[in-house]
């Protein structure tokens, strides 16, 4: 009985894990797109106005990713 509960909880955690992973993948792809857009603006057209908001969003995404990584570690530690 205890083993079954443990296994179900593990399965739920695994689902949450996959969801978080996909979310992180989307965030990193967004970050990559931002990076390439700003780089293109700098090299190609010299558009500087995108650089600072792009960097701010990128840092915010990094903060979310670190927060999620810490959450995952806490989740692992609680097992």
């Amino acid at each position: 009985m205890k083993d079954r509960v443990h296994r179900e909880r593990r399965s739920q955690k695994s689902t949450v894990f996959v969801a978080l992973m996909l979310f992180q993948l989307v965030l990193v792809l967004l970050q990559l797109w931002l990076f390439v857009s700003v780089l293109e603006g700098q090299i190609g057209g010299g558009a500087k106005e995108m650089a600072v908001p792009g960097a701010a969003v990128s840092v915010a995404i990094l903060a979310v990713n670190i927060w999620m990584l810490l959450g995952i570690r806490r989740m692992d530690a609680s097992e």
Binding site: M21, Q24, V28, L34, G54, A55, S58, I61, N65, L69
Partner: peptide, 20 residues
């Protein structure tokens, strides 16, 4: 994979700050 993606995210954020 999670750790790697966070590292990649850090690299992209550093690059973006550098460009700014």
């Amino acid at each position: 994979f999670f750790k790697f993606m966070t590292l990649a995210s850090g690299g992209l954020a550093a690059g973006s700050v550098g460009m700014a």
